[in-house]
Simulated assay, not measured.
Amino acid sequence: MAKEDKIVFCTGGGCTAKLGAGVLSHILEKLPRGEKDPDLLVGYDSRDDAAVYRITDDIALVQTVDFFPPMVDDPYTFGQIAAANALSDVYAMGGEVKTALNLVCFPESMDLNILGEILRGGAEKVAEAGGILAGGHSIADTGVKYGLSVTGLVDPRRLTANDTGKPGDKLILTKALGVGLICTANRVGEAAPGAMDAAVASMTTLNRSAAEISRSYDVHAATDVTGFSFLGHLHEMMGGRLSCRIDGSAVPVLPGAWQAADDCLYTAAGQRNRNHTGPFVRFENVPFAMQEILFDPQTSGGLMLAVAPEEAESLRDELQKAGLPAQIVGEITEKRDAEIVVSYPE
């Protein structure tokens, strides 16, 4: 591929391109609700990962959509990441992927071979997920954007919404944090050696195996950690009725992320996350670099699982045996004055 044909790196690529949580909440609050349908098990009221609609007592549809500009130069890799990110919402709800539709924005003046590589990467991830790519929609645009609309199925009795955790539940994170910081460092040529390779490996890993393993355990709630950051999605999990304590030293971090944070290679999205979620967080002895990692927007991040305390270690061990960097990172408590307390050893 000629140099001039490469995708131009977008400073707002991946999940850093999301609207901020505060702005989005303000918009959603103004939408007309309409009559409540008892079969709509999950809508946007809980700020959950996907919508869930019950068809029968045993079957519910899981519907989600996600797309964004590129955060890597290689179109095939971008397609893989964008697809893995979109598919993740079905896994976060406890579902299985069934079908996917491509969503494409692409400049007419750009080499169509680039688009072909993006779609090839996405199609391979849909197939890896066990789903069927059933069509899509494309429009001409001034920049490249790609993602999927995904439909899955879930047993309504096994649904894992994001805000149904219980006091005492242990919190398990299945992927390491820091992809936003690393992608920013890479864009300006300051990424640590090997850091971008590790970030890409993480972003292209489906959450399928983590979801499948967790189905054998007493998981009360789940979400995937994406653009609103570890702390932002944790805030959504607390749902205004719970609190939690996080051991900052237990949170898995990608190599190079700490250095990027120390070098002040922050994203605007990370600062929006801090502004929105910061008032709900109390840090105790947490280095500023680690704070930035916890506010860092993730693209195709891992699952955060609220699991019964007696099963947490077994679930963590099984996830690690599957090759995932999963760790127990904290515990849900009854509601306290500070919603999220993050501590760090002296």
Results as ranks from 00 to 15, higher is better:
5 D>F: 13
8 V>A: 13
9 F>L: 15
9 F>Q: 11
12 G>Q: 14
15 C>S: 15
17 A>C: 13
21 A>E: 09
26 H>Y: 07
27 I>D: 00
29 E>K: 14
30 K>P: 02
30 K>N: 04
32 P>D: 08
35 E>V: 15
41 L>H: 11
43 G>H: 03
48 D>M: 11
48 D>L: 09
50 A>I: 03
50 A>V: 11
53 Y>G: 07
55 I>H: 13
58 D>I: 01
62 V>R: 08
65 V>I: 13
67 F>R: 01
67 F>A: 14
70 P>E: 09
70 P>D: 03
70 P>L: 02
77 T>A: 10
84 A>R: 00
85 N>F: 02
95 G>P: 08
97 V>I: 13
97 V>M: 05
100 A>T: 06
104 V>C: 03
110 M>S: 02
114 I>D: 04
114 I>K: 02
118 I>M: 09
118 I>G: 07
119 L>D: 12
120 R>V: 04
120 R>L: 14
120 R>C: 02
127 A>W: 00
129 A>V: 04
136 G>M: 10
137 H>L: 12
140 A>M: 12
141 D>Y: 15
142 T>F: 10
142 T>H: 13
144 V>L: 05
145 K>M: 12
147 G>M: 06
149 S>M: 12
151 T>H: 04
151 T>A: 11
151 T>I: 13
153 L>S: 04
153 L>R: 10
157 R>L: 09
161 A>P: 06
162 N>S: 14
162 N>M: 09
164 T>K: 14
164 T>V: 09
167 P>F: 03
168 G>W: 03
171 L>S: 09
175 K>I: 08
179 V>Q: 10
179 V>H: 00
184 T>S: 10
187 R>W: 00
188 V>W: 09
188 V>K: 05
195 A>F: 01
198 A>D: 06
200 V>T: 07
206 L>M: 01
210 A>Y: 00
211 A>H: 12
211 A>P: 00
214 S>G: 07
216 S>T: 12
217 Y>L: 06
223 T>R: 03
224 D>N: 14
225 V>M: 08
227 G>A: 06
229 S>Q: 06
230 F>Q: 03
231 L>P: 07
231 L>G: 04
231 L>Q: 03
233 H>D: 03
236 E>M: 11
236 E>S: 14
241 R>V: 14
243 S>D: 06
247 D>C: 08
247 D>M: 09
249 S>F: 07
251 V>M: 08
252 P>F: 09
254 L>K: 07
257 A>F: 01
257 A>E: 02
258 W>S: 12
258 W>D: 13
261 A>M: 00
262 D>V: 15
263 D>K: 12
264 C>F: 11
265 L>M: 09
269 A>P: 04
274 R>V: 05
274 R>D: 06
282 R>L: 11
283 F>Q: 05
283 F>D: 07
286 V>H: 05
286 V>C: 05
287 P>L: 11
290 M>Q: 12
291 Q>G: 05
292 E>I: 00
295 F>P: 01
298 Q>W: 01
303 L>E: 09
304 M>R: 09
305 L>T: 06
307 V>M: 07
308 A>W: 01
309 P>V: 13
310 E>P: 00
310 E>W: 10
318 E>Q: 15
331 E>W: 10
332 I>V: 12
334 E>N: 12
335 K>F: 05
336 R>G: 15
337 D>N: 14
340 I>F: 06
340 I>Y: 04
341 V>T: 15
345 P>W: 03
